[in-house]
Design a protein around this nucleic acid. Structure first.
Lengths: 117, 117
DNA sequence: TTTATATATGAACAAATGTTCATTTATTCA
DNA sequence: TGAATAAATGAACATTTGTTCATATATAAA
C-alpha cells in the first residue's frame, strides 16, 4: 500500500513540520529520561526525594526495597541527571536534581487524576 | 545488614512521608504513562500530533515508520488517554488528548537542554 | 589493625517490550 | 457487487529491563 495516495496528505505541510521537529539525538535523550521514570521503584524514589533529601538507608526503610535495588535505581537516576548525589563520610545523600523533575511528575499525576473523573 | 541502625534515620519523619505518598495504584498508572513516553516512536508521534491532528497515513509519511508500527503505538497511546481518536469515514484522526501531555514533553525537553550547558 | 556500617556493582535470569510480517476488518467508490 | 484504500490486530522474535544474590569497596569506630 502506498500511503502517499491519502487525499488528506499535504506533503509540503508535513515537510515543514518535519523541519521544526527535534533532532534524533534529542528524542533519544528524552526517551531515556522517560524510560527512567517508567519504573515504579524509581518513581517512588523520586517522589520521596522530592519531599526530603536522603541517604540510601533511609530509602531502604521508607520504601521497603532492597539496598541493592535502590542503589541500582539511583545509578540510573544519577546517570540521567535526575538526582544529585553528595557524599558525606560514609553516607551518600541523594536529592532531586531540579524542579523540572518535580513538575514532570506533577503533570503526570494531574493527567492521571483528571482522567478518573 | 539492618538499615534501621542508620543514625540519620528518623522513623517518625519517614512514616509521615509515607502517609502523604500516592497510593500504589496511582504510581502504577503513572509508571504506565511514562512507559508509553519512553518509546522514541511514540514520542515522535506525540510531538508531531502536538503540532497538527493527523490520520495514520499522514504519520506514515511524516515519520517514515510502517503503518503497523504506528497503529500499534497509537493503540498504546490511546489506551493511556494520551491521544484522542476521531473516526471520520475511512480515516481515523488522532490528536493530543490534553495540554498536560504537551507540558510533560516540554519539561523533559527543557531538562535535556539545560543539562547540556 | 579488626569490625561494623554504608554503598556500589557484576552476573544472571525471568519478564516485558517494540517491531515486522501476515492477515483482517472497515469504509468508500466505481 | 468488487476493487481500492485506511486502519487494526495477532503471532513471533530479538532486545531490553529490573530484580536478586553475592561480593566488593569505602568509611568510621573500637
Amino acid at each position: 500500500m502506498d500511503y502517499r495516495k491519502c487525499e488528506r496528505l499535504d506533503e509540503g505541510l508535513i515537510k515543514s513540520l518535519e523541519l521544526s521537529a527535534p533532532d534524533d539525538n534529542t528524542i533519544s535523550k528524552m526517551s531515556r529520561v522517560f524510560q527512567a521514570l517508567q519504573s515504579k521503584s524509581r518513581l517512588k524514589i523520586l517522589m520521596i526525594l522530592s519531599k526530603k533529601s536522603m541517604c540510601v538507608c533511609e530509602m531502604v526503610y521508607a520504601l521497603g526495597m532492597s539496598q541493592s535495588a535502590i542503589s541500582h535505581s539511583l545509578r540510573v537516576l544519577n546517570y540521567l541527571d535526575l538526582v544529585r548525589m553528595d557524599k558525606r563520610g560514609k553516607y551518600t545523600i541523594y536529592s532531586i536534581a531540579d524542579e523540572h523533575i518535580v513538575t514532570l511528575i506533577d503533570m503526570c499525576m494531574e493527567h492521571i487524576t483528571e482522567q478518573e473523573t
